[in-house]
Structure formats: structure tokens, C-alpha cells
Simulated assay, not measured.
Amino acid sequence: MSVEAISWALNHAPVDEPSAAFVLVGLANHASPDGRGAFPSVARLVTYTRLSERTVREQLDILEAAGIITPCDPAIVAAYVKRADHRPQGWDLNLNLDRDNPAHLGRFQAAVKAVKDRRRQRRERKAAESKTVVTEPINDPNGVQPSHLVERGATVAPRSPRGATVADNGVRPSQERGATVAPEPYVEPSNEPSEDQKQSSLLAVGERTVRTARGAAQTPSANQGDHSRMAGDVLGQMPDHYRKAPAWLRSRMLKRIEAVLADHEPLALVEYAHKFAADPNFGDYEHLRRFDDVVRKLDADVADGTACPRCGRDQMHTFCSADVEGGTDER
């Protein structure tokens, strides 16, 4: 902690936005007396300021655009944080700037305006993309859409039942009393299941069914079109530190799982994720590397016959060994 840096941030920094000032004080709390080498994590700044992560990152962008902070030497952060995937962004504070200098304060205000304009443009672009306009053809030569209202006193013909024969004048011919009316053709419903029924008949991915006898339900192999849906189901059955990872990390995990599902069964991936992911040294952002280790371990165990390629359990258990490798129920 530096008293000099904090005093500058509170009294002299060219900042007139409360959120940006609060974030700057949080950075100054970690800077050296000359304002260099401040590298608190974004999570730490969120704790200091009680702002959202998105707001904190936006204020850092504003401060950097105004020249109030600049990225510091990465070697300073590396000297304190050995693991590269855990290193936050470091910053140097420009203690030479002063609030009483109109040029310095003007740069900050211009940076605020630029960031707010970009945010407004993003909102407008998203609104324009989501807005759909449905127009009906206009037959009137003057460009006036005809009214669908019925004038007062006009006679409106009753609607004919579906499939009824209507004459040119809009009147349905009546049947004479006692005349034979041909019955409506009967169409026998098809026994073939629809596509939705075929999809819903698939066993839920990652569902751990009780396999007590040969011939119990198995998870069928999915085609390429199902891998995206299956990846979400697999991730939902994995350990908590996978399911509770940040959104950007879960997005990468889904893409990785979708790629792996081309060669592996879902149940086996879930089984091995639970078996080899309970490590107390599991880091905050090691999910992708640890998942790759799980896949490699599954490949090795399947290759040497110690794991079932369908469910990831012991290769010699009764149910899967008979269907996958042509084995028998005997152990």
C-alpha cells in the first residue's frame, strides 16, 4: 500500500466520475510510492468498489484511454505470481496528472464519452438485429392498405367448414333431403414416429442408469448434429467446479466437449470427470487442461482394457463388456 499513490488518487487525479475514482483508489492501494506495479485482480477491485465486474472493466478501459493508467512491465507481476494463467493485468499510475489541469481532465471526459458512445452503439445494433418487420402486400394503386372492417349493413356470408364446396357466388349448395352424401375419406394415421419423437427417445446424456442385467438401456451414439446439445448435458453432469466456472470458461468447455464427443461416449466422459477431477490443488482456470488430462486418461484405460468405452467403468462388468467387446456375462 502506498500513501502517496492513494493521496494522489483522492486529491489530484483528473477524474470526475465516482465509479472511475473508486476503481483508481483501489489500484493506488496496491501501487508503489511512485505509482508503479499495481496488479490487483478484477475480483479484488469488485470487492473494494462493490461494483459489477463489467463496470470495473469498463472503468479500467476509461482510465487507460485517458492516459491515467498504463500497462506495467509484465515481469513485475511474474515475479510475484509464478503461474502465468493466474497473473492479473498490472498497471502504472501516472502521478504527474492533475485535476486542476483542464487538458488532463478533458482527456478523461473524452474517454468517458467515447466508451459510452460505443456502449450505446452496441445496444442500438443489437436492437436493430432483433427487430423484425412483417409487411403485407398493398394492392391499392395509391399505396393505401385496404381496410378489413365490414361496412355497416353489409351482408357477410358465413364461413364454410373446412373442405366444403363453395360456389362462385360464395354460397354453399345445400343437399336435398334423403340424398346420399359421400363420407369424408379416412386417412389412417402413420405408425412411423416423428423426428421429435425419435429425438426424445434418446437416453438423456450423462444419466447414470442402474445397470443390473444384460440388455438394460444403453446410451446410443449421437450424430454430429446432436453434439452441441449433448455437450451441454455432459457439462451439467460434471463436478461443481466445472459447472460453476465463469461464463467465458464454460463456453470454451462446451466447444471442447463437443469436439471430444465425436470419439467418446458421454457417460464415460462424465464418469472420468468425477473420478479424476477431485483434486484439492485444482486451480481457478485449469478446467481445460484438466479436462484434456481426463480424456487422455480415458483413452489410455480404454486402450489397455481397464475401462469400458461406453460408461467409463470397469471393462469386465456384466452389461457393457458383452455388447462392446463381444464378451460374455462370465467374469
Rank of each mutant, 00 (worst) to 15 (best):
M1S: 15
A5T: 08
H12K: 09
V15H: 00
P18L: 15
P18V: 13
A20K: 03
D34W: 03
G35M: 06
A38G: 05
A38E: 02
V42D: 05
L45S: 02
L45C: 04
V46T: 10
R54G: 09
I62E: 03
E64P: 00
I76R: 15
I76C: 03
A79N: 13
Y80V: 10
D85S: 14
D92S: 10
G106W: 06
A110M: 07
A111C: 03
K113C: 01
R118V: 10
R119C: 01
Q121I: 01
R122W: 12
R123V: 13
A128H: 14
V133G: 00
E136V: 06
P141Y: 08
N142Y: 11
G143P: 02
P146V: 03
L149T: 13
P158I: 01
A164K: 02
A167W: 03
R172T: 13
R172E: 08
P173T: 09
S174F: 05
Q175A: 10
R177N: 08
G178A: 08
Y186G: 02
N191P: 01
P193M: 06
Q199S: 07
V205F: 10
T209Q: 09
T209C: 07
T209N: 05
T209V: 15
A213R: 14
A222I: 13
A222W: 11
N223Y: 07
D226L: 14
P239C: 01
H241V: 02
R243E: 06
P246D: 11
L249A: 09
V260H: 06
H264E: 09
A268K: 03
K275V: 02
A277V: 04
G283S: 03
D299W: 05
A303P: 00
D304C: 08
A307P: 07
C308S: 07
R313V: 01
Q315H: 10
H317P: 00
T318S: 09
G326F: 12
T328Q: 02
T328M: 03
D329G: 08
D329Q: 08
E330L: 11
